[in-house]
């Protein structure tokens, strides 16, 4: 498991959540036609790319590792955030009020939790 990538993704996710939270407080929907909305979506897209890379790297690590691993949970925590982030972006974009970025906050905050659990599963039998 790539610790550097996991830590980086945790901070990117928290950054995206913070950005979206500012939009909530400012009462702005996620607007792709404005710099603040586009910026939020760009960070979310970056996060999604990183999560995809983590999923691929994680599955490779799982197949090649010698250690005993709860494979089902491990794959769940790898693939889960890859699905949740775009769903949250979609569900948030549909809402044209301040509650739209609120959905992004929730979606992004699930990422650090799942990365934490991913690490715990990886280290459980280490």
């Amino acid at each position: 498991m790539n610790d550097v990538l996991a830590t980086t993704l945790t901070f990117v996710a928290l950054g995206a959540a913070l950005w979206a939270l500012v939009l909530v407080i400012a009462g702005q929907p996620v607007r792709p036609d404005r710099w603040h909305g586009l910026g939020a979506l760009a960070v979310v897209a970056l996060l999604e790319l990183g999560l995809l890379a983590q999923a691929v790297a994680g599955i490779v690590a799982m197949v090649t590792t010698e250690r005993e691993l709860d494979g089902l949970s491990f794959v769940g925590y790898l693939v889960g955030p890859v699905l949740i982030v775009p769903l949250a972006a979609f569900w948030g974009l549909v809402e044209r009020t301040r509650w739209g970025p609120g959905v992004l906050v929730i979606g992004c905050l699930t990422v650090p939790v799942m990365i934490l659990r991913l690490g715990q599963v990886w280290n459980a039998h280490g």
Binding site: G102, V103, I106
Partner: peptide, 9 residues
Amino acid sequence: SGPGRLLIA
């Protein structure tokens, strides 16, 4: 819609 969308999320 509104807070409902966040709640559903």
